[in-house]
Structure formats: C-alpha cells, structure tokens
Design a protein around this nucleic acid. Structure first.
Lengths: 185, 185
DNA sequence: CTTTTCTTTTGACCTAAATCAAAAAATAAA
DNA sequence: TTTATTTTTTGATTTAGGTCAAAAGAAAAG
C-alpha cells in the first residue's frame, strides 16, 4: 500500500487523513499468470495500481488478439472507455505473470472525489494517461517497423525486456517474424 | 454563441446563470484561410469551439508536416498536451478555410470550473475526446490503407468531403498517391 | 531426464504501398 | 482570358514487411 501512496505523492502531497481514507478503500488483489482481471463484455468499475507483475490489455479484431499495451510495476491502468462511459468493455486485461494489484472501485473513488488532493492526483494521472496515448498513437502511426521498435525501446524498456515477442509485435502493429528480424539487426 | 450553448446542452442542461457566465467569458475569433490559430513553440491557453470553417492540427517531423486531425463545425478542440501540462505546443493549428471560433481562455475556464454544470460538461467532453483518440489510434494502427480510408469515411465524412487529399492521406499515414488510387476504386 | 507444447528464428516468396517522375486537372493570379 | 501555381491523377519501379512453412530453442508437463 505504501507503494501506491509513494506513487500518488509523486503527483500531490497527501495528508494523513487522505492516506487513511485511501487505505480503507484500496483492496489488494492477486492473479496467477494467464488469469483475467477483466474480460470483454463486462463493465469495468475499478482503477488498478500495479504492485508487482505484468498485465496485458488487448482486444479481439477479426478473431485476432490485438495487444494494446502492457503495464508493469508502478503504473495505474483501467479500461478507460468502459470505466468513464459506463459501457461494456471491448478490452481484456490479463496477467502475463503472477501479479499483485491494488484496486479502487468506482463507487469508492467517487467518495474520494470529495477530496481535493485526490482529485488533483486523478486529474494529473488522467492528463498524463491521455498525453501518453496521444503521443504513442502519433509515434506508432508514422514510423517504419524499426522506428516503432526503437520508440518502444526508449519509452517502455520493461515491455521490451519482459513481454513475449508476439505481444510486442502486436503493440507495434507488425508481424512477429519482422520483429524477430529487427532484433538481431 | 447560441451554437456553443446548444452544443454544451447535448451534454448537460445549463441554468440561465451559467449561460450568462459563459456569454461573458467566451470570445469570438475569426481567421482567414491559412492563418494560424496556434503555432508550435507557444503555450496553448485556450479551448476553442468551431462555429464555422475548418481547422487542421499538425506537427512537423523530419521536416514533414504530419496532419493529426482536421476539425469541422460544432467540435471543440485545443492542443491538449500544451493546455493540460503547461508546456510548449508541438502542434500547429491552422485554418483551412475562413473560420469562426469561439474561445475560452484557460484562466476564464478555471473560473467556470467553480460551476458544477460546466465541470460535468468539461469532463464529458474530455472523456469523449480521450475515447476518440484511443479509438482512432487503434483503428488506424491496425488496418491497411483502404481500411483506414473506410474508417475515416465512416466517422468523419466532413473531413473526407472537404479536406485536401494530401492532408487526409497524412492523417491516415499513407501517401497521397495511394489515397488517390483508393478513391477511384 | 524425456516428451510434449509453446515460442522464436530462419528462409523463400509475394503483395501492398512507397517513391520517383511526369501529365492532367483545378484554382488562383495577372 | 492567359499564365502561373497548386493539387490530383496516372504510370513505372522498388521495397518494406506480410504470409506461409519449417526448423530450432525454450519452457512446461509427464
């Protein structure tokens, strides 16, 4: 839990009351490798903080799994469209390794929304998340296969080091054979 | 101005006080074809509502203009990274036609932020904008050239009808020759 | 350990789309 | 209008990266 507090305090200093509130609302969840945190067709009503392990976000298009992103330690994530707009998720969230998460449910986070410190954090986090997606989509849409790989290597080394080749290739929108060839120069 | 109010009321019903507040803060801006609304290297401290005309958002990469998106009537837009994080914009906003905008400056919108109705609208708008970028990046990253064109044709017919071929091709990340060939089947 | 299953690499081939170049069409300017 | 400029189309050629198939390596299961 301290890990989550440290993470939030990189955005905003928390009072001890806020910390206590957080501690009451946050839940520890553990998942085995390959277990689902969220499946498509369900409502996503949580935000998660990744304590340890790795989580893959993907959706299915024409029967093929398209990996959107892979999250590693000390990141927050959710299925944003479903969470923000109360619609069914099109995305799956699956543990790629044994994983520990801290979750805050939507109803609970709405209680926290009364708290200005938490709102500052949530806004900063959302702004950052938004900027990231905006940036990634630009970078990945314009570069060639090697350029995409180098970009990912710069901004998300953990993914490159730990994720499966096929999943990385899918994030980049290239075939895994091409990625394999890029890797050995 | 009524046009902006109608637009907002698609998200949230406004009281007459809120409408009056809005009317005081909002400014009408007009731009000639090719004029800049925002240039890279400057801070973006406004949100705009597009009353009439067309605005292209682009950035420069390796000396080439990369068109990110083109906005048409009844859309709101800003240079989000710059606006949200107070950093220099990497994006240009340029009128593609003679254009009328309604602008609200950041300091003014922070006054409006005291107003719960406005906050509901701002959050809904941001959520929608976010969802759009998220969706577009997925769609455009995975499809082939024809698929990308068909996607844009579905979701943004105005762009297809009114924007220059080269700009559309740039949004899709394909060459304008390829787009020209796709168009005549 | 062996065997089975899953993942990555390698090779051969093919296709979508980029590039280069020039003509045609459309728009703007004189 | 005629001329100049910009935009779009068309053709020829090249190439990055996809697909298919099989081998090699690694991990998991027996």
């Amino acid at each position: 839990m301290q890990q989550l507090i440290d993470y939030i305090e990189r955005f905003v200093k928390l009072s001890s009351e806020t910390i206590n509130e957080l501690k009451e609302l946050a839940r520890l969840e553990t998942y085995e490798k390959d277990e689902y945190i969220l499946e498509a067709g369900r409502h996503c009503n949580k935000i998660w903080f990744l304590k340890s392990g790795m989580v893959r976000k993907y959706y299915v298009h024409d029967g093929k799994e398209i990996t959107v992103w892979i999250h590693t330690e000390n990141e927050t994530f959710t299925s944003l469209q479903s969470y923000a707009q109360n619609i069914f998720s099109e995305e799956y969230l699956q543990a790629c390794e044994n994983t520990e998460l801290i979750s805050i449910s939507k109803s609970d986070s709405e209680k926290l929304a009364q708290n200005a410190q938490i709102m500052t954090f949530v806004n900063a986090m959302m702004g950052k998340e938004f900027s990231n997606i905006d940036k990634h989509s630009k970078e990945l849409n314009q570069r060639d296969a090697r350029g995409k790989y180098e970009y990912l290597n710069q901004i998300a080394l953990e993914i490159i080091k730990r994720a499966k080749l096929g999943h990385i290739a899918s994030i980049l929108g290239i075939s895994q054979e091409t990625l394999s060839r890029i890797r050995k120069f």
